[in-house]
């Protein structure tokens, strides 16, 4: 009797989701420092941004579940997980014992958190490619937000971390572009429903 061969260990594909997750953990390993008030405020804002983006993607995933679009639901859930990891990283990096409370809507009064994808852009027949395009737009807005901070009158330590975060968001833009290559671009007429909700005569 031959000994049972151990199945070859599956090598994990380095998907963009996994890569960002690894990056997030690496950042968390940095020692927590005693932050200035301006720095802490900025990090609360950065946390709120990641948190809002996670909630938004979760809502999108639920909408896609409801409309029987499992591929896009899975993708939005993955994006939500990534944003959640970023939020957790900030909590660890700041040495907060729990997430900051002051993170809800009011921070972005009369605007949206830059990384939150626009809710009006969904379609029940949308495809993963379009979901990633939405994510790409959101990451681009995050880059502009953090880059804008580096040109502001903010204290030096805030500008430094904003620069770091802008670089990280730029990396996310690159990863999503890579990810986009894995999905076909939707063909013309992708939104044609053979059983449309339109009123018949």
């Amino acid at each position: 009797m031959t000994a049972k061969k151990k199945p070859a260990r599956k090598t994990k594909r380095a998907t963009p989701a996994r890569k960002t997750a690894v990056r997030a953990v690496k950042r968390a390993a940095k020692p927590a420092r005693a932050p200035s008030a301006a720095y802490a405020d900025f990090m609360v804002q950065a946390y709120a941004m990641e948190n809002d983006a996670r909630d938004r993607y979760t809502e999108f995933a639920e909408q896609m579940d409801m409309h029987n679009n499992p591929d896009v639901a899975r993708l939005f859930r993955k994006l939500a997980r990534i944003e959640g990891l970023h939020a957790e990283t900030i909590v660890r990096e700041m040495g907060w014992s729990k997430p900051p409370a002051r993170t809800e809507a009011w921070m972005w009064r009369h605007s949206e958190a830059p990384e939150s994808a626009a809710p009006g852009d969904l379609h029940y027949l949308m495809q993963p490619y379009q979901a990633l395009e939405l994510a790409l737009e959101s990451e681009r807005r995050a880059v502009s937000f953090f880059s804008g901070m580096t040109h502001s009158t903010a204290p030096v330590e805030v500008k430094r971390i904003a620069r770091e975060m802008a670089a990280e968001e730029r990396e996310h833009v690159r990863l999503i572009r890579e990810w986009l290559k894995k999905f076909p671009k939707p063909e013309r007429g992708w939104d044609q429903d053979p059983d449309p909700p339109q009123q018949s005569d």
Binding site: F60, Q63, D65, H67, W106, P119, G120, L122, Y124, P197
Partner: peptide, 24 residues
């Protein structure tokens, strides 16, 4: 209860705004 509205419908946002307003 998960909404059955069409994805992209503005009513999702209104729901979210109401919950934010009530919390505030």
């Amino acid at each position: 209860v998960k909404p059955v509205w069409c994805p992209g419908c503005g009513d999702y946002t209104v729901l979210s705004s109401v919950t934010k307003a009530l919390a505030a």
